[in-house]
Amino acid sequence: MTTQEILDGLKQAVIDGDEDSAASFAAQAIDAEIKPMDIIKGAINPAMDVVGQAFEDGDAYLPELILAGDAARAALDLIIPTISTDDLDGSVQGTVVIGTIYGDAHDIGKNIVSAILAAHGIKVVDLGINVSPKQYIEAAFAEDADVIAISSLITTSLPYHREVINNLVDRGERDKFFVVVGGGPVTAEWTTQIGADGYGRDARDAALVVTQLLEGLAEGNKAPLAAPILVGALEHG
């Protein structure tokens, strides 16, 4: 197969959400000594752009978005270890643990945010719904995560956000992870008040915040930020 055929095959496998085929094309690409960044830029990013755009246009739906994200991850898991740091040239790397907070069962928004983050090449570990403050922290350590992302649609579960941050502070480990919050009742004021590092109104905003935080991390920034990154905050009467 030519380089182009391998890249096209990988791109199509990601679009189709076919994890096995994506992993197999990724392995072939590595064997063929295609540069890792060329694989990412030539196949994975354009594939996720296609699926992301189709979702926005109403031509693809949440399952396709999730499966494409999984396929991209399967390929990236093989590709990333072959990247040397000088190869990185600006593309962000990082791990996010995400979940819907304790008490709350709303997961559609969280699922969309996860899929969009995955589409940006970020490793996403989805903890599901009803996640306790302790579970976020334990998972973040276990996964060696950079960011804890919390989704909440329920006002009476918001205090658990504060608990995640307070727990980190009390353990003397607030500098280990950025904490990003979002979902209906979450506001810019709340984000600032609890000392979180970022807020985004929708999935696109979530990706913007997380990539900015990861870029900052690469430049040596550490949690907690002096002021959070706020994207898309609503203004109303």
Binding site: Y102, G103, I154, S157, P159
Partner: peptide, 13 residues
């Protein structure tokens, strides 16, 4: 929906 009672925060669950 109520989110506080007698000024106290309600915590889900």
């Amino acid at each position: 929906s109520l989110t506080t009672i007698h000024g106290y925060e309600v915590l889900s669950g």
